[in-house]
Computed example of a mutant assay.
Amino acid sequence: MKALIRENKGFIVFLVLLGIFRTAFADWNPIPSASMHPNLLEGDVVFVNRVAYDLKVPLTDVSITRLGEPQRGDIVTFSSPKDGTRLIKRIAALPGDKVEMRGERLVINGTPAEYAVIGNATETIASVGDLQALTLNESNGKASYSIQLLPQIVAHRDFGPVTVPADSYLMLGDNRDNSADSRVIGFVPRKLLIGRAERILVSADIQGNWMPRTERIGMSLRSE
């Protein structure tokens, strides 16, 4: 064993440094579910900037210093406050915001988000089949992005008003009627944020023919 380690010392050091880099500065996150349709698809792998908000001690949630502030509309990866599972959602509300949802319409500090119809799509849900989906543009303050609704299913379309606690965030999936987000797991403390998802690194149709989706490679995930 010692001889094996000695012969591969350089490679082992590389792996250790790669691990430190991935846990401290940059990361990648595969998309396993439909909760961020239409913007993220199963088979996308996104680049995550781990120092967008905080510089942390590697392998911990301990922040050394704050480097930036999360904004409404940011897509972020974080550890679920419910069970520690890594999730990816969009920040819908910031600390101190008074937020509610009425019939899918998001209301922040008394101001309803603005919506514009983009079109229709088809969403396939296991044990249910193909459903008609409605794609909308949601403008939430300075952030503007696409969301998807599934009018045919029972979903959590109303909540609040609630006030987001200090150093916490309200997260929503873009696929509003098919996402276990803050409506299920609660507010997400800043210390559980892993980083901001910025671009799609690679993409493949893992639910179909596994062919690369070259048109998605390099696509920006920043809200307009």
Rank of each mutant, 00 (worst) to 15 (best):
I64E: 06
V188M: 12
E123C: 09
T85P: 02
A133M: 01
Y115K: 09
E104W: 14
P112C: 01
D181I: 06
F187H: 09
Y53E: 11
T23K: 07
N137Y: 03
E100C: 09
F14K: 08
E69V: 13
S203W: 03
T135K: 09
L87F: 11
N175L: 07
F11E: 10
V76L: 09
T60H: 08
N137T: 15
G84C: 12
S203V: 07
L94N: 04
G119E: 12
L131M: 08
N178K: 05
S168D: 07
L55W: 10
D83E: 06
I153F: 08
D27G: 08
P161Y: 00
P151K: 11
A133N: 02
K191A: 14
D167E: 15
R102T: 06
V46G: 02
Q207P: 01
A197Y: 02
K2L: 13
L201F: 03
P165R: 07
P70I: 05
S146C: 03
N39H: 07
L40C: 04
K98L: 10
L17N: 05
E123Y: 11
P95S: 06
S63H: 11
A197I: 07
P212E: 08
Y145I: 03
V16E: 01
W210G: 03
T122C: 03
G43S: 05
K82W: 11
S80W: 04
R66N: 14
I217P: 02
L87M: 14
K191F: 14
S80C: 10
R86N: 11
A24E: 02
G119V: 14
N39W: 07
G208H: 14
A113C: 13
I147G: 01
V188R: 10
V62R: 11
I12C: 05
A133P: 06
I75F: 01
A155Y: 10
M211Y: 12
